[in-house]
Every structure is written in C-alpha cells, then in structure tokens.
Design a protein around this nucleic acid. Structure first.
Length: 121
DNA sequence: CTGATGACTATAG
DNA sequence: CCTATAGCCATCA
C-alpha cells in the first residue's frame, strides 16, 4: 500500500473519530468531509481495512437512509446496533432517524465558537 | 490491462 | 416501502 492510499485512509478514519458520541454520519457525508468527493464506497473500504486497536467509532457510520450497512441478522449488524443503542442512538423499524441523530459539523462550529459570530451582522 | 466487487447513493416506477 | 438501474471509484484477482 503506497503513501497516498494510507494517507486517504488515515484522513477518513480521522474524520470518523470526530463524530460525537450519540450521533451518526453517512458514508457519503464522511467522504465529503474527508475530502473524497463521491467516495462513499471508499469510506466503506477504509473501514473494512481498519487495523486492530484502531479506536475508530466505525459503528457511528450508517447509510444515508439511516440503515445499518450490514445484513440484518449478521454478527456485524448486531454488534453495530448494540453499540449504537449503548450510547443512546435509537433504532426504530431497523433504522436510525437521521433527522434526529445526524452529526452536523456546521452546528458544532455554531455551538463551540459562537463568540463574535454575529458581531458584524 | 481487464473485469468483478463492494461497510454507497440517487432516481424512477 | 421495495425493486431495478445506473453512476461511482478504490481494490483485487
């Protein structure tokens, strides 16, 4: 694996690490933030290649519809839903309500650095 | 190089 | 809501 690939994966993993506990993001969303336009599939690929002991909250990444990407009934599906429920993310009808749990970096900015945000308005 | 694959998504019916 | 289709693009055989 060359540097460019490793770097892209690192960037994606780093982005996923920014998702706050209790919130989720879609593959496409992570791709966009990580600077990989139309790279939703690459995000999935990056997660598939996660090294041991990564500490990346991979379970906070869902399909844009709020559905868990794994097949229902699989071990991975169970593992992911379990972890989400554990941090308060509800799963109704097999899917997460994205309107409610979707992470919005813009909003983070708004909440963390409101200082002077409206000064020149 | 070529073709198949996949932890994706958008759109149409 | 579900299926089908078509883009998408890094990876892999």
């Amino acid at each position: 694996m060359n540097d460019a690939q490793a770097q892209r994966f690192e960037k994606i993993w780093q982005t996923i690490r920014e998702i706050p506990e209790g919130l989720v993001a879609s593959y496409g969303q992570i791709a966009e933030i990580a600077g990989v336009p139309r790279g939703a599939r690459q995000v999935g690929s990056a997660l598939r290649h996660l090294p041991p002991g990564h500490g990346v909250p991979w379970y906070r990444v869902l399909q844009v519809s709020g559905t868990i990407a794994f097949e229902k009934g699989s071990d991975q599906f169970d593992e992911q839903s379990k972890r989400l429920l554990q941090e308060g993310v509800a799963i109704l009808g097999g899917k997460v309500d994205m309107r409610k749990y979707r992470w919005q970096p813009d909003l983070d900015e708004f909440l963390w650095k409101p200082r002077g945000a409206w000064d020149d308005a």
